[in-house]
Nucleic acid binder design. Structure first.
Lengths: 105, 105
DNA sequence: GCCCTGAATCGAGGGGTGTCAATATAGAAG
DNA sequence: CTTCTATATTGACACCCCTCGATTCAGGGC
């Protein structure tokens, strides 16, 4: 949607509009780190996981884990809930399936 | 697999080993950019796409598009073949399905 | 109230990333 | 061989990201 380019030859190729690409890319970007992938995997393995179980599973500082969880949360991949002293994380329902559906196209 | 952490409570949570996480994260990282996502989408929409069709579809310089294609290639998501003056790109068979399968777990 | 623990935020440092203009390379055509 | 076109590479710049130590915030228990 920019230049003189879409001259018949590639009119139909633009399968993904820029807005949706921004949206999806932001979520894939959140998955683009080994630590976050493992965190997500650990959370997805259960209904709910306490941060106190996630943090000691890595050789990283507590603030670093908290930072990665924040990025996953901002990407709308996980959600958190505080209960007393502890905070529990869970996967946002359907979030991963939406990405999987895009890749399977 | 690091600390004193896996004390019964979270022994089974480590669903993803570090090596495989590195592998998958590298591919998701390549998807974590709107331009690359659109490039991949355009390539996946056909069996084969010439660079000369991809470059003019963006408001970006030719070297920038070439750079993004290189990153997608290094992530083993796409493959290229030169035929005469032109270079054609195609999606590596099964690459996207592998990622989709992980997300659908 | 005070302290203790779990988790988030702040600020800084080192490395990585997206973009460009300029240049180099590959192949075809004259 | 020379020239032209299509891609790739290089070098530079601004910006972003991962990590840490230090600090702050939230709740529970004394």
């Amino acid at each position: 949607m920019s230049k003189q380019a879409e001259s018949a030859c590639c009119a139909g190729i633009t399968a993904l509009d820029a807005a949706r690409a921004d949206d999806l890319a932001a979520q894939f970007k959140a998955l683009g780190d080994p630590v976050r992938l493992r965190l997500l995997s650990m959370i997805a393995a259960r209904d709910e996981v306490c941060v106190c179980e996630l943090t000691p599973a890595f050789d990283l500082s507590q603030p670093t884990i908290s930072h990665h969880l924040k990025l996953l949360r901002q990407a709308a991949l996980i959600d958190s809930e505080r209960r007393g002293t502890w905070v529990y994380y869970r996967v946002v329902p359907g979030a991963l399936d939406r990405l999987a559906a895009f890749l399977a196209t």
